[in-house]
Computed example of a mutant assay.
Amino acid sequence: MRRLAWVAVLYSFCALSSAAEPRARDLGIPFEGTPGPLNALTDIAGITVGQVTLIEDLADAHKVRTGVTAILPRGKASADTPVFAGWFALNGNGEMTGTAWIDESGQLEGPVMLTNTHSVGVVRDAVIAQRVHAGGADASGYWWSLPVVAETWDGHLNDINGFHVTPADVDRALADARGGPVAEGNVGGGTGMICHEFKCGIGTASRRLLAHGTGYLVGVLVQANYGVRDPLRIAGVPVGQYLRNDRVYTDAGLDGETGSIIVVVATDAPLLPHQLKRVARRASMGLARMGSYAGNGSGDIFLAFSTANEHPFQAGSLGQASFVGNDDLDGVFEATVQATEEAIVNAMVAARDMRGEGGRYAKAISHKDLIRLLKRFGRYKRPHAVMQASAP
């Protein structure tokens, strides 16, 4: 009971403080495309996000630095009304459950959950249990559930073999899912994550686009835990070649790409499952812009869904769906690449230094040094508002 109360306080703090944290655009980083009002996945009507962040120093000297993030494509209605979806693995050294049924049916049923590698099982079971407890099962008396749970490995900072994510944490992430601004950096499933050997975590971004005179949105949320330092590029600047101090893995003796990234792409454009699989593939290009080469040890797994076409999933013998023609998908593809890139940078900018398991650390990217490099390479764009937060 005491731990749950502590987690609740931490969650509330993260949700409220995130709005005050600088984001990538606040540092003068230039990006292509026009973002939505919040520049977040939740710009798309109906989508809600909930996060539980677990940070605790245990009496036995182990460090808890983990959590869970819940994405509900249709908010509370996600359990009853699926969305069309598709997925893609750029490199499969990772896990996303439920993908066989997405391939078979073209549908995503229920939430998308993000957590650490060794908590996939408990999160999946908790999602099923919550649906069972909610009642309203089919005529057999049982719900049939294949939840989508994706992971990245936070064992550098987190006591990952301590199995600290509990069903209660999953329940809270689902119950607290809301629209509006999304907390980024050291929160939720991204709490203990690292990318390009900088502290990283959860990040999000969105883009507006136009097709046949109709305005649509594409939103992206990432749990970023991939990449090595040297290839890192931000807005085309070879940042990794200049910011080489405090490399995370030097003390662990690791070499090469050993992390992962989960990318969730959403749109309100009406798309069919095979088109959404094509969209999911385009997240690869946003990742490439950052300098990732999807190494052998990386789990780079992407999911795309559309919140349009709600009516075909309602009761009835004949469902009819609308869709954007393949010849008109280029805007969606481009928006996906742009939003994926910015979401990753937002995750890096929002993250803060963290020391964790075994005294190991991950240092956040220095805002001051990043701005200096942007100016040096002629890529700095003066932000509209003066950044109030101090640079780490």
Rank of each mutant, 00 (worst) to 15 (best):
294 A>F: 13
370 L>V: 06
321 A>P: 02
160 I>Q: 10
86 G>S: 04
16 L>G: 03
305 F>S: 06
210 L>T: 15
31 F>A: 11
367 H>R: 06
112 V>E: 00
169 D>R: 09
293 Y>F: 09
178 R>P: 00
386 V>W: 04
370 L>K: 06
29 I>V: 15
39 N>T: 01
240 G>A: 07
79 A>Q: 12
392 P>V: 05
178 R>Y: 01
230 D>T: 12
382 R>G: 02
210 L>R: 14
56 E>S: 08
380 Y>C: 11
108 L>T: 02
85 A>S: 13
328 D>K: 11
271 L>H: 05
391 A>V: 10
278 R>K: 15
331 G>Q: 11
302 F>R: 02
320 Q>E: 15
310 E>L: 07
84 F>A: 12
241 Q>F: 02
332 V>P: 02
323 F>W: 13
174 L>S: 10
256 G>F: 04
307 T>L: 08
348 M>V: 13
220 V>L: 04
243 L>C: 05
208 R>Q: 14
77 A>H: 04
2 R>K: 13
51 Q>L: 03
292 S>R: 06
299 G>E: 08
123 V>Y: 02
190 G>H: 06
10 L>D: 02
100 A>C: 00
108 L>K: 06
59 A>L: 09
53 T>I: 05
253 G>F: 11
66 T>E: 05
198 F>M: 14
130 Q>N: 12
255 D>K: 14
138 D>Y: 10
217 L>Y: 01
259 G>P: 01
13 F>I: 14
391 A>S: 15
208 R>W: 01
103 D>H: 10
57 D>Y: 06
321 A>T: 05
115 T>P: 00
179 G>T: 10
276 L>W: 07
83 V>S: 11
225 N>D: 13
309 N>E: 11
327 D>G: 06
273 P>Y: 06
330 D>H: 13
193 M>C: 04
195 C>S: 15
363 K>F: 08
42 T>R: 07
258 T>K: 13
147 P>T: 02
184 E>T: 01
309 N>Q: 11
102 I>E: 01
370 L>S: 09
381 K>N: 12
386 V>M: 04
301 I>M: 15
166 T>N: 00
120 V>K: 01
64 V>N: 09
139 A>W: 13
